[in-house]
Design a protein around this nucleic acid. Structure first.
Lengths: 132, 132
DNA sequence: TTAATAATAGGAATTATTACTGTTTTTAGT
DNA sequence: ACTAAAAACAGTAATAATTCCTATTATTAA
């Protein structure tokens, strides 16, 4: 694999944007620095970086895939009101794959867990709205 | 909501096919009985039935959504070799949403958990292939 | 029986993503 | 530094899954 400035900037952009951006968000953010960058290049490099384990792809039940610069074992929560995505890493989830392997005989290699609900901020905002 | 023969047959087909069919699988299976049925009708009714809680939509990390006639709380495993989808319902997973709500303050309403790996059959088949 | 309304078939449109192609960059070996 | 092979790029076309649109048909309550 050869170096490319585009790939370097794509990776930096995912890291910089935090908030688990989509390919399109990365593309838009990059157009300031690289006005000619192609959306296909963004997709291809996000896929390559994810396959290499440098990024992590997050598939949500609907909408475009997200990309996460944090690649250690953790899961995600999506707030259905504000749309933000939060990391969760709980003890009960750490041994999840092994537990399922042990109890079912299915050899679990990976998993995808996405929780949906209301984040703390949105719970508070809903309370405020009700109060008015 | 009015009755329709198409909707009734779509539901029966998901129940009959078992194996967590996609919209397209339901469509193909139905063409024997209803040669003129439209793919759009299948999609619309699968969506309606899922929104009503009569079916359950399963979103996998890639490929088309699946539909499940079993709507009680359970999760899924996808075999990466044969592609089959298996139900799992383990004790450790039953209180998952409540645990996350308690420990994070995020108000969890639903979740999607998909395990990937090798089913028992495929583990055995791989052993056999190695033996030859 | 009829009028309203929901549902349909068939096709167009949308969204997310990958594939293709001719050109440009990168890089290893001279 | 020079050059040839390989990789990556930009731009565009293609694909897959799904929803939307519209004129017609089916269902149902009065």
């Amino acid at each position: 694999m050869k170096y490319s400035r585009q790939r370097e900037l794509i990776l930096n952009t995912v890291i910089r944007l935090k908030g688990h951006p989509t390919a399109d968000m990365v593309y838009r953010a990059l157009r300031d620095e690289l006005p000619n960058i192609s959306l296909g290049t963004v997709y291809r490099n996000l896929r390559l970086l994810s396959e290499m384990g440098i990024l992590r792809r997050i598939s949500l039940p609907d909408g475009a895939d997200r990309f996460d610069a944090r690649v250690d074992g953790h899961d995600h929560m999506v707030c259905t009101r504000c749309g933000r995505i939060f990391d969760i890493s709980l003890d009960i989830l750490s041994g999840l794959e092994q537990s399922v392997t042990d109890q079912t005989g299915f050899q679990v290699a990976s998993h995808s867990l996405v929780m949906e609900g209301l984040c703390k901020d949105c719970q508070i905002n809903i309370q405020k709205e009700r109060g008015i």
